[in-house]
């Protein structure tokens, strides 16, 4: 597990009254929570409630129509590049190029975060070091997901945003990933995650998006 000891000081990330408007309707309103170093948030709710959308907003891929995200007192959308330096995001897809080898894939993403020093150790973490020189087109779906997760271990960031990270993984790897998450939190990292499979995330806050649905009447005023 990679951490840099220099930024061990307590950090604070908060979502303040965030609302999302998409496809001509309000997806959720007033989402407010905060998270400190070592903390974790579990985003919950049935399909279609906006969990992925919420994580995309937190990652800066989408902008909330109302409300702000704050890192300490800094609004994250003011200088997005600074925010992007603090986060790792795992979405539904595995950005793994079939024509590149496993190590080339991982190294590329690592180098965008400025360091390639931890690629090898990260590969070993997920037991795919022996696949390093295999072109990714020979990998199974689960192995591709492992490569994707390896990517976030190669460069230390404070906040992990994980959208159903364990899809397609076997039990042993899920257990391994739980250890990684625990280590990340121990070293002062934060995790915001949505999942449909049970994951061991001790003392995680629960953010139930069902609680932030707009009132039915609000729809009729839209247009």
């Amino acid at each position: 597990m990679v951490t840099s000891s220099s930024d061990r000081e307590n950090v604070y990330f908060a979502s303040d009254q965030v609302a999302c408007f998409r496809g001509g309707r309000t997806v959720f309103v007033g989402v407010t929570f905060s998270i400190n170093s070592g903390g974790a948030v579990l985003v919950k709710g049935p399909n279609g409630i906006g969990k992925s959308t919420m994580l995309r907003i937190l990652a800066g891929l989408m902008r909330p129509i109302y409300g702000t995200l704050k890192w300490h007192d800094h609004k994250t959308h003011v200088e997005p590049e600074i925010h992007f330096k603090r986060i790792h995001y795992v979405g539904h897809h595995d950005p793994v190029k079939p024509a590149l080898t496993v190590i080339e894939n991982v190294s590329f993403w690592a180098s965008l975060h400025g360091t390639r020093d931890h690629v090898q150790s990260a590969l070993e973490e997920f037991d795919i070091a022996h696949l390093a020189d295999v072109p990714a087109r020979f990998l199974s779906a689960g192995q591709k997901r492992k490569v994707n997760l390896t990517r976030i271990l190669t460069a230390p960031t404070r906040l992990w945003l994980l959208d159903e990270p364990t899809t397609g993984l076997d039990a042993a790897t899920v257990a391994k990933f739980e250890q990684c998450m625990a280590a990340h939190r121990n070293s002062g990292g934060m995790i915001i995650l949505s999942t449909h499979t049970p994951l061991d995330l001790p003392e995680a806050q629960v953010l139930n998006l069902s609680d932030y649905q707009p009132e039915a009447a609000a729809h009729d005023n839209l247009y």
């Binding site: 309707r25 009729d220 839209l222 247009y223």
Partner: peptide
């Protein structure tokens, strides 16, 4: 635009 919004919100309300 209003039709679209209403359609989606109907699905949403039914689900909730």
């Amino acid at each position: 635009a209003r039709c679209r919004a209403l359609q989606v919100s109907q699905i949403q309300n039914a689900q909730v």
